[in-house]
Design a protein around this nucleic acid. Structure first.
Length: 585
DNA sequence: TGTTAACATT
């Protein structure tokens, strides 16, 4: 239907605006709205506000709200929730407070919907105290009001108060449970999220988990690298009929990739039908390959995405370029970087420069990397200098390394890792005075290396290890295995690399330090507790150290095991004495 | 003649 020349009467116009707005066709709704002659009712404004607010036209919503006020129309109980939602989305608490004032003037502050929307607005703008005060003063509350406040406390990290509210509420619906579960996940309390999920199912009431509930649990699986747990959630999701939910399937791709199973990630990706394979799904798959060091697969996936006519964004390029850098695909990475703007219309951001610095740095092209930094159109941040410093450490280039380190000391003085790196570099060339002065800085500022820890999941239960700890019930067996290990792997060519140990101790002691690194403890535990041939999956909170990397290659050979280690940056697949990263990470 | 709460990709 063409709208040209149409001069609708008020009633027809209102119908049309409502129809277009409810279908998300805001441009047509606005077109009709703007052509209306004569008076516009609150109803009409409410329809258009609803459409704008629901479809992401947040600024427009506020604009229409001003319009409405300027022509003397009174906003009503339907108006405020739409407007407040937009204030929350834009984090414009100042405007939100004006709207709040307006609602007081028209005597609607006691309205249930307005009150709940106000709570939500304050919560999302970080003013939890204001939200809590409103909640206490509300004459009528419903389950949504409680839910808004609970989510608010969770978002602000006040888990205890959220729990208290949750236990005190008389009726809980699925949103209440999901708010708690996702709150736990967001606050790094994955275990409690799973416990609550189970409790919810035990209650066996009419509360049924939905796709949002599943989406709140999957990041907890991914974070803990809990593959078994993730599979359980996946089959549960299938059971409740979510196989065709593209959001859930995409989140599953990400979860499987982060839990180390690319095969499962890919099969979830392949199950998505063409129309559901949106930007997010493609980005997730590209990033998955990149983090596993499969640079060529990342490139192919990117090319598939282009063939399917999906427009890439800056995340696609972050994935693509980091994939190239993790695999040493220097020329391919540079090719994409150089044409991302001209061919794909994506402006390079600082994270893309960081990838390319990393790309050049890992290939030992340090001078080029430094030149690129000098030519950057934006301020180089810690990610840029950090990539350069790490490359200088690998290629033992003290001259450029000092430049990078000095920048980092200014940009992130609290990050002890930078001092340690530079100190290691000085130590290597015997410049002990500099080593000492850096050590003094570290001590004076009370900085500690964040303690390394690794964990592995056996039969659905996670086992956590810190370097050198003996708390695990099987510690004795683990240490017995590790005691023998150096001999065994030295026989097939292993040479301990102690150059990353900062402490001023004897070589023998350094070697012992190495044998009790957390990742080795976790691997030993895995070897002891799984059948021969089982794939071991270990997650580490820091980067895997070079000696553990070397040792794990030998372990994979002599024990004939595939070992997948997720470190803070990427995945390493060890098999038959070599690693998927090609020693390039 | 319609309104509120929980949500994934770097």
């Amino acid at each position: 239907m063409t709208l040209q020349g149409l001069q609708p009467n008020a009633y027809v116009a209102a119908k049309m605006v409502a129809m277009y707005a409810s279908h998300g066709d805001i441009d047509s709704a606005l077109f009709v709205f703007n052509r209306i002659d004569g008076e516009r009712s609150s109803l009409l404004y409410n329809s258009i506000l609803r459409g704008c607010a629901k479809n992401g036209y947040t600024e427009k919503t506020l604009e229409m709200y001003y319009d409405m006020n300027s022509i003397g129309l009174r906003p009503d109980n339907f108006t405020f929730p739409f407007v407040l939602k937009c204030c929350a989305e834009l984090l414009r608490v100042g405007i939100g407070k004006c709207v709040h004032g307006q609602s007081l003037r028209v005597g609607l502050e006691c309205d249930l919907y307005v009150g709940t929307s106000l709570i939500d607005m304050y919560v999302k703008c970080g003013e939890i105290l204001e939200a809590s005060k409103l909640f206490d003063e509300m004459p009528v509350r419903d389950v949504s009001s409680w839910n808004a406040l609970i989510a608010g406390y969770m978002k602000n990290g006040v888990v205890g108060v959220a729990e208290d509210l949750f236990r005190r509420m008389s009726t809980r619906n699925i949103v209440s449970w999901t708010a708690m579960i996702s709150g736990y996940t967001q606050n790094g309390l994955g275990d409690r999220a799973f416990d609550l999920f189970e409790e919810m199912q035990r209650e066996g009431s009419e509360v049924k988990p939905n796709w949002v509930t599943i989406m709140s649990l999957l990041p907890a699986c991914a974070h803990a690298a809990a593959l078994e747990q993730g599979r359980r959630i996946h089959s549960y999701a299938s059971w409740i009929g979510l196989d065709s939910n593209s959001y859930v399937q995409t989140a599953l791709v990400s979860m499987y990739a982060k839990c180390g199973s690319l095969v499962d990630a890919r099969s979830c990706f392949d199950r998505l039908c063409v129309k559901d394979k949106g930007l997010v799904a493609w980005n997730t798959m590209i990033t998955a390959y990149a983090s596993h060091g499969l640079g060529m697969e990342a490139v192919w996936t990117f090319e598939d995405m282009i063939r399917f006519r999906v427009q890439p964004d800056f995340i696609s390029f972050t994935g693509l370029l980091s994939g190239c850098s993790h695999s040493g695909l220097v020329d391919i990475g540079l090719k994409y970087f150089n044409c991302m703007n001209s061919v794909y219309f994506v402006e390079p951001r600082v994270e893309h420069y960081a990838c390319v610095v990393d790309l050049l740095g890992r290939a030992g092209r340090l001078v080029e990397a430094k030149e690129l930094i000098d030519r950057m159109p934006m301020q180089p941040g810690p990610s840029i200098w950090g990539a350069l410093l790490a490359a200088c450490r690998t290629y033992r280039n003290l001259e450029i390394g000092e430049i990078a380190a000095k920048q980092l000391f200014v940009l992130e003085p609290e990050n002890s890792g930078n001092y340690v790196l530079l100190s290691n570099m000085y130590a290597e060339v015997g410049r002990w005075e500099e080593v000492d002065s850096l050590r003094v800085i570290l001590k004076d500022q009370g900085m500690k290396k964040s303690p390394g820890c690794s964990w592995t999941e056996i039969n659905g239960k996670a086992h956590l290890f810190h370097g050198g700890d003996t708390y695990h019930p099987q510690a004795k067996e683990i240490y017995m295995l590790l005691e023998d290990l150096p001999k065994k792997i030295k026989a097939v060519g292993y040479v301990p690399d102690t150059s990353f140990v900062l402490h001023d101790v004897s070589e023998e002691e350094k070697e012992h330090n190495l044998t009790t690194h957390s990742e080795k403890l976790a691997i030993a535990f895995g070897l002891l507790n799984t059948y021969p041939g089982t794939v071991l999956r270990v997650t580490k909170n820091l980067r895997i150290c070079i000696d553990c990397h070397t040792a794990t290659k030998y372990i994979s050979r002599i024990y004939d095991r595939e070992i997948i280690v997720r470190d803070v940056n990427r995945f390493h697949h060890f098999k038959d004495g070599s690693c998927s990263c090609g020693d390039y990470w």
